[in-house]
Computed example of a mutant assay.
Amino acid sequence: MRPVGAPGAPSRLDLERYELEFDENFGGTELNRDHWLPYYLPQWSSRAATEARYDIRAGCLTLRVDADQAPWSPEFDGEVRVSSLQTGLWSGPLGSPNGQHRFRPGLVVREPQAASRLYTPRFGVVEVRAAATDDPDALVALWMIGVEDAPERSAEICVVEVFGADVGPGVAAVGMGIHPFADPTLVDDFSVLAQPIDARELHRYAVRWTPDEVAFYLDRELVRVIGQAPQYPMQLMLNVYDLTGPGHEGRYPKEFVVDYVHGYRPR
């Protein structure tokens, strides 16, 4: 049975009409700084406070949150800790409310950031091959946000979001969808769908983004289609969160293993 949604997306992801433009296979031992900024929304905190912790070995990236890691922005996000990579960045001046991903009211720039666009596609396919964790205090995700060169260009496409508490040996609840934020042309459409996979193993999660729709794929099979789409460039956000805060006697490190991230443009 075909997944519910708009009829345009193919039931299996076919890349024949696309060409690879963002080829991140995590070779070597160093992060490719032409691809990634190793911070998490540093305009609302600082680069020092949001610098990612990670390892690269055997062709895989492991993002991690360690037991001694501090919250990234206690002022605005409480005790949440995160290690994240992103492919674009900018902010307004110190003290201004202007910056990417205004996730709550009252945000103020604490460290101005120069504009950087390392990879900011407009339409195409984005795919990650990754293994989630079953740590009940962790969340792993790949999402895309508008570059927000205008306030309304701020929507999110969530490629994949997995809470460790929702991971079992034969099934996982996988989040995917669109959040409009300040984009008045879109409506919120986000789902968490049970999938018959062991998400602790490597799986491929992808979106096929066109001017008319966003289609979501798991291991290149269609899962759902949303019949609306952002119309402006977006950047990638790849991260693992610890949702408990310092001092919690849980499992450490929290880890998100990523084999590759690929971006394709239409031929």
Rank of each mutant, 00 (worst) to 15 (best):
P105A: 14
G106H: 07
P112G: 00
P112Q: 00
P112C: 01
Q113S: 02
A114T: 08
A115P: 13
A115K: 05
R117Y: 02
R117E: 00
R117K: 07
Y119F: 15
T120V: 15
P121I: 11
P121Q: 06
V126L: 15
A131Y: 06
A131W: 06
A132K: 04
A132G: 13
P136R: 07
P136I: 12
L139P: 00
V140A: 01
A141K: 12
W143R: 08
M144S: 14
M144T: 12
I145W: 15
G146S: 02
V147E: 13
V147G: 03
E148Y: 06
E148F: 03
D149Q: 05
D149T: 09
D149R: 04
P151V: 06
P151T: 03
R153W: 14
S154G: 04
A155F: 07
A155Y: 07
C158I: 10
V159F: 06
V160Y: 02
V160E: 04
E161G: 12
A165V: 04
A165D: 11
V167A: 01
V167C: 10
V167F: 01
V167G: 08
V167N: 05
V171I: 04
A172G: 01
A173F: 06
A173M: 03
G175W: 06
M176A: 15
M176K: 14
I178Y: 10
H179A: 06
P180Q: 01
P180R: 09
P180V: 09
F181G: 00
A182M: 13
A182Y: 14
D183S: 13
P184A: 14
L186D: 08
L186Q: 11
V187Y: 04
D189T: 13
F190S: 08
S191P: 03
S191C: 10
L193H: 04
A194Y: 02
Q195G: 03
Q195N: 06
I197R: 12
D198E: 06
R200C: 14
R200E: 04
E201D: 11
L202D: 06
R204T: 15
V207C: 10
R208L: 15
W209E: 05
T210I: 05
P211S: 09
D212R: 13
E213I: 00
A215W: 09
Y217N: 02
L218F: 02
L218R: 03
D219H: 07
R220A: 02
R220C: 04
E221R: 15
E221I: 01
E221C: 00
E221K: 10
L222E: 02
L222G: 00
V223M: 08
V223C: 12
R224C: 08
V225C: 13
V225A: 04
G227L: 01
G227R: 10
P233N: 09
P233I: 08
Q235E: 08
L236D: 03
L236F: 13
M237E: 05
M237A: 06
M237Q: 11
L238N: 05
N239S: 14
V240W: 09
V240Y: 09
Y241S: 13
Y241N: 15
D242I: 00
L243N: 14
L243I: 11
G245H: 05
G245F: 08
G247P: 09
G247Q: 10
H248C: 05
H248K: 12
H248Q: 07
E249S: 14
G250E: 07
G250L: 14
